[in-house]
Structure formats: C-alpha cells, structure tokens
Amino acid sequence: MIAKWIGKRVIMGTIVLIIVSFLSFFIMHAAPGNPAAAYYGGNAQTLSTAEKERIEKAFGLDEPVLYQYGTWLREALQGNLGYSAKEGRPVAAILQERLPTTLQLVVLTLLIVAIASTWLGLLAGMKEGSIVDRVLSMFSIASSAIPPFWLGILFIMVFSVQLGWFPTSGMNDVRGEGGLVDRLYHIVLPLTVLVISHVGIFARFLQDSVKAENRSYYVQVAFANGVPEREIRTMVFRNAVIPYINYIGMTIPSFFGGSIVVETLFGWSGLGQLLVKSVMVKDFPVLMGAILIIGVVVVICLFMIDVLMICLNPRLRRGGIV
C-alpha cells in the first residue's frame, strides 16, 4: 500500500517537473531577443551572419522550439543538463556549486520561520483578544506588505552603511579565511529579511487556526467536563498544526522566490542570483537547469510534507487515502 502511494507520488512529481520545464522552456523562447546571443558573448557586433548561422546550427538553435525541448528533456532524463552558454562549463557543475548556498539560506529561513511563527501563533491564538493577539495581527499585515527588496535596502543602509555591523553583500570576507563564523556573519542580513517577510503571515495562519480550533465543539466538551487546560491545549495544538504544516508545504516555493530577490540584493551566490544573471545573458541551459533543480527540491519538500501530514492526520492514514 505504502509502496503504491510512494510510486504514485513519484509519477506525479515527475509530471509536475515536466510541465514546469516545458512551460519555462517555451516562455524563455517566447521572450524578445535571440537565444543564441549568450553564445556570441561580447562578439555579437563583429560576427558575420554566416558565423552566427554556424553557431546556431552547432547548438541546434535553428531547430523548432518543440524539437529543442525534446532534445533537452531527453538529455536531462539521462542526467546531462548541457553546458553553460556563457561559461562553457557543465550546468550540473555550476548547480552543484550554487545549490548548497541557496539551501543554507532557505533551510535556515524555513527553520527560524517555523519555530518563531509556531511560538508566536500559539501565544496569540491561545489568548484571543489579548494584546499579543492584536499586535501579531498587525505585525503580520505589516510584514507581509513590505517588499523584501525594500527591506533589504533599508537593512543595508542602516546596519551596513550607517552602523557598520554587517557586510553589505557577499558570502565571505575577502581578507579572512572563511569558516562558519564568517558565513554566519554574512548570512545575518539576507536571512533576517527573508524571515521578517515570511514569519508574520505564517504566525497569523497558526494564530487563526488555533482560534478556530479553540472554538471547536470538542474543546467545549472537554472544558465543560473538567479536562485540565494543559491537556486541552495539547489537543488544540495537535489539530491546529495540521493545516499550518500543509500551509508551509504549499508556500515552500515562495521561499525560493524570495531568495532570488534577496540573493541578488546581498550578492549571495546561490541559485537565485544565478537565475537572475542567466536571464540577463540569456544563458538558457543554466536557466533550465536551475529551474529544474529548484523544482526537484520543491517536489521533494512537498513529498516530505505529505509524509508528515499522513503521520499527523489519522484520517489520511486510516481513511484509505494512502
């Protein structure tokens, strides 16, 4: 039964990745400009038409888009993501360098957001109408309304330029030897921006979920029958956390989206920054590789969330859904 469910999920995940890559490939080719421009590099002005045609033919760019996509997909399924049009290096090698730095940022953000929003959401939700409840409601609206790029610029101005507490950008001190402390020192500002732009809305979701659960019939029954409040709180949390975890799962892609802006702003050399640079120079093989790898990570995360949901929700376990 479980093997069948996992098999189904793997097939669904693969279909999602194929759809994502298909749409990305066609949107890229529909954008203005010549996809061969990245191969020309800075020599576009000096190349003759014949030379341009030769380059396009060599890289298959003269073929119909559907044919090009088919070729890319066939190679990708065999583990070959091609070569960067800009750098000439294998895309897989570039992604291997960039993925861990993005994951550092995203996983750390997710962890802090999950812990902080759980604490805040529970605190506010359990004390409906209290000051904490009202302050959190306002904070969540404010924090989700502030664009991360603006907050990032503000942080750079205040904490880097004026106070000089943190570096404006980069991942390591050029004069230093690197290491964990140096990396943490550089990650503080981008991490804080990402956490602030997510934590309010997550805490608000849990806060509302706890409030709704607190009004549940079974809570009234337990309360009326003298079940200790601690026991009731545990029941409420257990039930309120299920939609909250589902919500985290659904919004995981937004963490990667947020990291694109933040990485670019803070010079964090991860997949987000790579994506932006690749768009600028129309490095389609790298773009496709980066989109695919982010897609794979998101699909894996969603799979893990599904497993967690099954563990937490007996209706999914015993209701024959699995």
């Binding site: 079974y218 029941m235 257990r238 937490l312 007996p314 209706r315």
Partner: peptide
Amino acid sequence: NSFSPTLK
C-alpha cells in the same frame, strides 16, 4: 464532534 478528530 464531542471528541478530538486526531486522537484515539
């Protein structure tokens, strides 16, 4: 609805 849905 008198019982929590996720507890035995």
